[in-house]
């Protein structure tokens, strides 16, 4: 069930976009990336990022693999699949359509 302060359904889009630019990020890095790039305006907490990642993995938009980092610790990193790239394009254009529609309403009303 979505929380009131959640990203209003845009989490998938953000994750896909970030992974398209910087493939091979792990969950924590994706989370901090959202926070950093949005200058702390958008926050994805742990409780939503992982279910989202696993859901998208299930939908085969992204794929995961275990890598060993320099400090010998294992991390699960994600990258986009071909289906994920398509999905990103679809989501992006829908987002643009929605936001432009919203701003039009704000301007014209």
């Amino acid at each position: 069930m979505p929380k009131p302060d959640s990203l209003q359904g845009s989490l998938d889009l953000l994750v896909l976009k970030i992974l398209s630019r910087r493939p091979g990020l792990h969950g924590y890095a994706i989370m901090t990336a959202i926070q950093d790039i949005s200058r702390d305006v958008l926050r994805a907490d742990e409780g939503s990022i992982y279910p989202a990642l696993h859901r998208m993995e299930e939908a085969e938009w992204i794929r995961a693999k275990w890598v060993t980092k320099e400090n010998k610790k294992r991390a699960r990193v994600y990258e986009l699949t071909r289906a994920g790239e398509n999905q990103l394009a679809t989501e992006e254009s829908r987002w643009n359509a929605v936001t432009s529609a919203v701003s039009r309403v704000l301007r014209m009303a």
Partner: peptide, 17 residues
């Protein structure tokens, strides 16, 4: 176990930062 491990690695990352 896999999910657990991923979470542990997440926490370790956070602590590192």
């Amino acid at each position: 176990r896999e999910i657990d491990e991923e979470m542990e690695s997440h926490i370790a990352e956070a602590v590192e930062r």
